[in-house]
Nucleic acid binder design. Sequence first.
DNA 1: CTTAGGGCTGGAAACGTTTACAATTTTCAG
DNA 2: CTGAAAATTGTAAACGTTTCCAGCCCTAAG
Lengths: 340, 340
Amino acid sequence: MTGIKDVAERAGLSVATVSRALSGKGNVSPTSRERARAAASELGFVLSYHASSLASGRTHNVGLVVPSVHRWFFSAVIEGASAALLEAGYDLTLYNIGENPEHRHSVFNDFLLRKRVDAVIAVSLELSEAEIQQLHAMHRPIVGIGGPLPGASTIRIDDSGIARKATNHLLGLGHTKIAHITGNEAYDQDFHLPGTRRSGFEEAMNDAGCPVRPEWIVSADFTIEGAYAAARQLLASAPDRPTAVFAASDEMAIGTILAARDFGLRIPDDLSVMGIDGHDLGNVLGLTTIDQDAKGQGALAVRTLLGAITKGLVLEPADTEHPTKLVVRSSTAVPKAGTF
Amino acid sequence: MTGIKDVAERAGLSVATVSRALSGKGNVSPTSRERARAAASELGFVLSYHASSLASGRTHNVGLVVPSVHRWFFSAVIEGASAALLEAGYDLTLYNIGENPEHRHSVFNDFLLRKRVDAVIAVSLELSEAEIQQLHAMHRPIVGIGGPLPGASTIRIDDSGIARKATNHLLGLGHTKIAHITGNEAYDQDFHLPGTRRSGFEEAMNDAGCPVRPEWIVSADFTIEGAYAAARQLLASAPDRPTAVFAASDEMAIGTILAARDFGLRIPDDLSVMGIDGHDLGNVLGLTTIDQDAKGQGALAVRTLLGAITKGLVLEPADTEHPTKLVVRSSTAVPKAGTF
DNA sequence: CTTAGGGCTGGAAACGTTTACAATTTTCAG
DNA sequence: CTGAAAATTGTAAACGTTTCCAGCCCTAAG
């Protein structure tokens, strides 16, 4: 394997100068820089990042911790972060926590501490005190997406506000009998995200003077499958059925649409449905939603971190609110006159 | 930061012995091992993987190259591989090629050559000669999933066989007017996967003496959205419509189901639909499919690689066929008597 | 004509491990 | 008990960079 020594020899320079020339740090004369570059490319030299990391303390590697890969939000964040990192020449190390508590434990207690990453992005993770400790023990910048993360910068959307916005969209169309599909306890513990969106929903309803009917608030696990089951129950009681459903995520809205079809309910004629997210499927299904640009959030997290890393700054905790956008499609409409 | 020296000092041993004790390699007396362990945990010592990698040449890190994260197959492979790697104490570095040709180029020409990974898993990537060269230039074991990869071990399913199996399932129910949704040219260039499945379909049809109608073979891009559009065209011609659709992937089958619903076609009464994959949504939609256990394939790839790495063997190219399973749900049925 | 200061360069000391090698101790068959 | 082989241990040399430091040359101000 050709090392930096070979390059130095070939270029007729010292190892130190070659290192400076190739990394772009420090002062090197244009002549030397060019000679180093030429020699390196002739030899097909590529840096050993282990050696480089060991000597410099920079790893050019960012850790991304997610609870799941296949769920829409996380895969979108991964794609956004991945592209941004690739452009910056950084590696992305993926830690998928999954359901297994042991995996979760080892990620926080072993993997992240190995000094392999320059920074960490944690997505939608509710962390225990101990886990937060471990994160900060790395002494690396951290950005949290989609949830609070004490002591770290976070990127989030205005959950309460968009829930109100969504609810108001339905109210504005004339709906009053609106059901809400929220997350279940597990998620609320983690994050309060379902709770926050639910509050937004309730506030908007109250402001409009519409009663919130407890039996029309059902919970699911944020997946299509889960919401499908929940929506079936909700929609089963034919005599008194909501005219609109606001789901706390697009995946749950999709589950609702599928369930509605099982009952022969046409959308939006018999039932208006909307969600929150900007899921790719939304387009096909004509789902009205609030796009939260998950890819953009991933990319923003990367930019935030890289900025801090290259400037060598300590990232002071800041809370960035990511913009969202109401996307009206065909799953919501004015309620049919005389619907119950 | 506490290093191995501190541990050695505290344990009253030499650095070498501590290293051997903690890594489990070489002979160490039980007493010393225990003392080393104790000292390490008291000090909260964690190995610097950079230093370790530099000295040993082992990175405890596997690279995973995928064309996309959000599509079902890839996210499933990622989850399978991720869990297996986590258990083995390995990091997973994700290279998401995406659509951008520049990203693709830099992954093969920069990232992978940085000697940062012990092995590489390439998923469903059609590689140019040059890219294959680059891969092998790493001198690291490689496993390909879901497609041929010259000179490397591959894990694949019997595409032709399962296409025949799927088609036979429909034929067995009594269908003769069967359409097929295949991948488009881009994918066939890459991979011949759509072509192979399509051949399987045609063979089964021919064996059964059923005509294959060219206008009933439509292509899409393997996504729900793409297949939705394609299926709408296919199903638009009401007077002469197939009674069953076999899609080359579950996502395309789902797109078909959504399109069918737009036309008021009931499934399976008016139209039987089946796919290939084992997509999570299949359960909700009652989709009959052939489960290819993508997670399992990811995990198998990891086990294959790790076996080779730990034994220090060169991985001789082998082709492993992963088993698949026909899952009959409610999207396929005997065709209605008298349907055209 | 001095001299301070800055650009450029090379030597060599890190960075924190692993591991070859040699030295020492233990084990055990004869 | 003896010697050979095996087990255990420590010393020190890698691993391939980055970066501190000192030296040199050159410019420009005084």
